[in-house]
Design a protein around this nucleic acid. Structure first.
Lengths: 173, 173
DNA sequence: GCGAATCGGACCATTTTAGTCTTAAAATGA
DNA sequence: TCATTTTAAGACTAAAATGGTCCGATTCGC
């Protein structure tokens, strides 16, 4: 009962994309650096987002990804389901409506309700909302200018960077 | 983002237990047969429920499990968290309050909200509620008398039994 | 005290996650 | 046209979680 890394990275990558002017094509390399995501992984995740119609891709030099619609029209639900598949707490809801347990099972009702609540939360939140909440003050850039953020790259993961970042005057967000 | 089999079986096993008079000690064997759960697996699950104080165990011949409180005082949240660990969609909430992402992350807020909704649903539902919703008419016993339910046992799992069970007059639940 | 019955916990197989790597295809610009 | 740059697709892998089994320590009834 957790969001996967793929889902997490997907949202984060899209937030980075949503920070740019609409229509601007950005390489996956750039997005990865900004949000400290392993490069090849985000590439694969964005493939799914392309299939789902959330982003558009263009190949070749000068290529990259851009949002297929305005960030206000993309919901968190759409993103997460594109990456992780449909949200379904209960297994049997995925394929057939009847529960596999004997005589109709109380769990179905409970889990369906919980699942609907989650979907409500995700559906009412747009990518624009998320992008706005995420670092409203350009603190990332400040921190990066002060070399407080060692970037993660493939193979060589910087760890325990939080303290460094959050120490000092940047702390009072 | 799914409930685990362990969580599912835990709830189901407790429902079976809650059907009996309070204080009655029941062997896992019996509970397993009633809800078609692999025997040794439910044993392990009930270990966790014992540690969490949801059931009490007694060993030796004549031993088994009984609810430690009335079913109305046990919530689904308690059961599921006892079996699966705390419900935490977001990883970083589990250990530390600060998000690992740079400069405070929009995901934290979103996932925390979703998580709170799930907990609300689970917290407001008691085991007694579930037991009441689960087969109010004793349909299981009817079905079993008519040999419509091949019981699952260790090693030899009966599959695709649903059609057989739901066909015929039992269908209109 | 003995033996049967039961939980408790170590153990194991399979699936999922979280990535990486390689090859192919497409677009650009020289 | 050709080299370069970028995504697309998918095979591959290590590690963790899941789902489940099995045996031994413990306890009870006699």
């Amino acid at each position: 009962m957790q969001i996967t890394k793929a889902g997490e990275y997907g949202v984060l990558g899209l937030i980075a994309l949503a920070r740019r002017p609409v229509g601007e094509v950005v390489m996956v390399d750039v997005l990865c650096e900004e949000e400290a995501i392993p490069r090849s992984f985000l590439g694969k995740i964005f493939q799914n987002l392309t299939k789902a119609g959330v982003v558009k891709s263009s190949r070749g030099s000068g290529g990259g990804f851009c949002l297929s619609r305005s960030a206000a029209e993309i919901t968190a639900l759409e993103i997460i389901e594109a990456v992780e598949g449909p949200i379904a707490l209960q297994r049997c809801l995925e394929t057939e409506p009847d529960c596999e347990h004997i005589g109709g099972c109380a769990l179905c009702g409970l889990l369906t309700e919980a699942q609907d609540r989650i979907k409500e939360v995700f559906a009412k939140t747009s990518l624009a909302d998320l992008a706005q909440r995420h670092l409203p003050n350009g603190l990332v850039q400040q921190a990066r200018d002060r070399s407080l953020i060692p970037l993660k790259r493939d193979g060589q993961i910087g760890e325990k960077t939080n303290e460094a970042i959050f120490d000092g005057p940047l702390k009072q967000v």
